[in-house]
């Protein structure tokens, strides 16, 4: 496709809008400039790790420079770095602005807005506690999400397939489902024996509702002719459910899993802030309590990375399972 687009009517091959190598060099220059901005003007405060940050930025700039001089050829990594170059230039600009606004000029009030080097310091000094928090959050999320997704999927299939199950479950689902899972929090914390069990339940609840509804609508929307085909070929009910209805509904199920993952993050963080004594939500709360604002930003960054990573993972699984589908949304 893109090859065709590059050939003009007269047959001449059009050059891409910019030279990839040049863009890479520009990005390298931006990061080395950023490094100079961090290293050269004196800090308006006592920050450790200013030197280390400058070295890190300079090192990254040097890498970009090297990528610019390498032949793009078939090397995927080099080409990808070059593709991201415009973004990297903007990123360097934003980091520079942040550095100026905090450490160098103090345009922003100090304890609340720490400079980049303070965040780096948190990562270096407090990585053990951060890693432990990530581990606890992931463990809680995995348990609750798996439970909720499995229950929601099973329930959705049952409602979509059986009129009887639909009759009994549908009203309950309509009444209870839209309630935000966080509303159950006070109740859950005294009903369940431990705050961990309570949070697992809440995460499962938050995941389960969208998964149930989307699975159900997926099953209900299956082309009826698919069943006719299978029945004339000798299929029984088990085959119709497992080999026709469920595969046909999978695209919907994945939308539900995606929505469920989003709401499970929200519940997880709130549960950790209010009851569980571990995890990234707890870390945020703890950092705020000690006025350790740099730690808060660091935890936010880690959380963003973790959530984005999990969504990416879900989309990868979907792309693999639904490779037969055309026009999938790229995450």
């Amino acid at each position: 496709m893109s090859d065709i687009a590059l050939v003009r009517a007269d047959g001449a091959v059009r050059r891409p809008a910019f030279l990839p190598a040049l863009a890479s060099v520009a990005a390298a220059a931006a990061w080395i400039g950023l490094s100079a901005l961090v290293a050269l003007p004196p800090d308006l405060g006592d920050f450790g790790f200013t030197r280390e940050l400058a070295i890190g930025f300079a090192g990254f700039g040097a890498l970009l420079l090297a990528a610019g001089f390498l032949h793009p050829g078939e090397a995927g990594l080099v080409r990808r770095i070059q593709g991201w170059s415009p973004w990297l230039v903007v990123l360097a600009g934003l980091l520079g602005l942040w550095e100026l606004a905090t450490a160098k000029r103090a345009w922003l009030p100090m304890p609340f807005f720490p400079p980049p080097q303070a965040i780096l310091e948190v990562f270096v000094e407090d990585y053990a506690r951060l890693a432990d928090s990530v581990w606890h959050s992931l463990r809680l999320l995995a348990g609750g999400y798996a439970l909720g997704a499995l229950a929601g999927f099973t329930l959705g299939v049952a409602i979509g397939w059986s009129r009887n199950v639909g009759y009994w479950v549908h009203p309950v689902l309509r009444f209870v489902g839209p309630l935000p899972a966080t509303a159950w929090l006070p109740l859950a914390f005294f009903v369940f024996p431990s705050s961990g069990a309570a949070s697992t339940f809440l995460v499962a609840l938050a995941t389960g509702f969208p998964v149930t509804v989307l699975t159900w609508s997926g099953i209900a929307g299956v082309n009826k002719a698919y069943y006719d085909v299978a029945r004339t070929l000798g299929a029984r009910e088990g085959f119709l459910i497992l080999k026709v209805a469920i595969p046909a509904a999978l695209p919907h199920v994945f939308v539900g899993l995606f929505m469920g993952l989003g709401s499970s993050f929200a519940v997880l963080v709130v549960a950790e802030m209010l009851g569980v004594k571990a995890g990234l939500g707890w870390y945020l709360q703890w950092a705020q309590g000690w006025a350790a604002y740099a730690n808060m930003y660091a935890a936010l960054a880690v959380m963003a990375l973790a959530c984005s990573g999990l969504i990416t993972l879900l989309f990868r699984v979907r792309d693999r399972l639904l490779s037969w589908q055309k026009g999938l949304v790229q995450w």
Binding site: N223, A225, Y226, D228, V229, P247, A248, L250, W324, Q325
Partner: peptide, 9 residues
């Protein structure tokens, strides 16, 4: 059938 109704998956 008139439509092939193949299973796309």
């Amino acid at each position: 059938f008139q439509d092939p109704t193949l299973y796309p998956w």
